[in-house]
Structure formats: structure tokens, C-alpha cells
Amino acid sequence: MISKTLQLSNHRVHYLEVGQGEPLILIHGVGMQASAWYPQIEYFSKHYHVIALDMPGHGQSSCLPEQATLQDFVNWTIDVIQALGLGAVNLAGHSMGSLITAGVAASAPQLVKRIAVLNGVYKRTSEAKQAVQARAAELRQGVIDIQAPLQRWFGNTESDQSACEKVKTWLSEVNLQGYATAYTAFAHGDDTYADSWSSIHCPALVLTGEQDLNSTAEMTYRMAEQAEKGQAVVIPDERHMVNLTAPNLVNQAMQNWLHTPA
């Protein structure tokens, strides 16, 4: 696996690259970094050209302006895909990365062969909106609570706790400004591309964990049923970081998705 940097205008983009074959680009969620896809990088790099991006303000990628919206993150991703010069790619995102993925598919369909949306959100309830926007406001004031998301995301199983330790490290290393900017865009962005699902015509995997209380099974079914080639997968007994806690099941679902004719 090679660590690479791409310079886009005044933005530094860092990513991990490994493997050969059809391109598969991975976009992590808020507070994470490219390495948060490690089970998928290891599995898919045997047969695919895997590129895991550090989202703006995360890992080694430079920040977007503090007032950046979800659309700015989508435009950043479009610029990166075009700069990589790989043609149409398979694009997968987790959490905020899934909002970005859907936004790219809606805005620049010529750049995507297939999309996978893992633990995505769709038209939050008023109560959920208030909760996530309150957390965003706290981050903008410099208040970061690492334990709260860990408690939401992980149970007490051995696989959960092993993944939890890795995620705890990534959250403790995140750039606070980059985290706050991305989280604010995430908190206010669930409606931005929500009405565009019917315009997504490529194969679309929409996956979540049954016990993910924020990226719910209901949201997953609603997104998938609107896409022309949408498929919903809900993994029993799993929460928000399902790609880490149930990697075999997620990898199998993604493998089936990648075998779907584009």
C-alpha cells in the first residue's frame, strides 16, 4: 500500500493506493481517516485498484473553509476523481462519506460506475436534526467528546471492542477544525441530495447495521427503493461502524455489488 499526495489548487489531498483492476474509491466518515477502511482495503486490493481518501481536514488532507457545506465536499470529491484520471469509478462512502457518494452520483453521474452507501442518513427527523446540529455547535466551540460516539457506535463484543480501540485513536488524532467543519456540513446536509435518489441510475448498494439508531434501516430502505438499481442490505445486530465490526458480511455485500452489471 502506497501513501500518496495530490495537489488540487490550494488543497492537499492524501490517499492510500493499492491493487490493480477496476478502480474502487473509498470515502470515510467524520472524524475518521483513510485507514478506517482497512478490512475493505485488504480484501478488495487483491482484485481491484483501491484508493482510500483522507477527507478534507482529516488525516493528511488539508481543510476546506470553515463555512464549507456538503456540496463543497462533493465538489472536492468530483475534483479528486477527475484529477486521478481513472474514468468512471466504483465509489463507496461511509456515514458522511455516503452523503458525499450520493451527491457525486447525482451531480456527476458520468464519473461513477456504481455507488455504495454505508450507514448513510436520509431526511432525519426533527429530533435527530436537533441532536446532530447541537453536537456540531459544540465542536465549533472546541468541545470534543470522544466517548459519546464510541458508546453509540460499538457494543461489548470482542470484535466491537477491538474496532473501538482503533476508532478511539483516530478520533483522538483528528484536526479539530477539520472535524468541526465536516461535522457541521454533515449535520446540515442530509436533505441536500435526498430528493436526487430517483435520478441515480447506476447500481446502488445501500447498507446499514440493524442497530444503527442514526443511520436507520428505514432510511436505508427508503434510499434504495428510490434508486433505479438500488439494493438495501441491513446487517443484523450491528451498529454504525459495521464495516469494521462485521467486515466479512460487508465485504460480501460489496463484492456482490461490484459484480452487478453497470
Rank of each mutant, 00 (worst) to 15 (best):
T5D: 11
T5H: 13
L6N: 05
L6R: 12
H11R: 14
R12L: 07
V18C: 13
Q33Y: 07
S35R: 14
Q40F: 00
E42Y: 13
S45L: 14
I51H: 01
D54V: 04
P56M: 05
L64M: 04
A68D: 09
I78F: 02
I81E: 01
Q82D: 13
G85V: 07
A92N: 01
A92V: 10
I100L: 12
A106H: 00
L111P: 00
V112E: 06
I115H: 00
V117C: 07
L118E: 02
G120T: 06
Y122P: 01
K123W: 09
R124F: 13
S126W: 11
S126T: 10
S126C: 04
A128F: 12
K129M: 11
A134S: 14
Q141N: 08
D145I: 10
A148R: 15
T157I: 10
Q161E: 15
Q161D: 09
S162E: 08
T169E: 01
W170L: 03
E173W: 12
Y179S: 10
T181Q: 00
H188I: 06
A194M: 04
S198T: 14
L205I: 03
L207H: 05
L207K: 06
G209M: 09
N214L: 13
M219H: 08
T220M: 07
A227G: 03
A227R: 05
Q231K: 13
A232C: 12
V234C: 10
I235E: 03
D237R: 06
V242I: 15
V242Q: 05
W257Y: 14
L258P: 09
H259Y: 02
H259I: 06
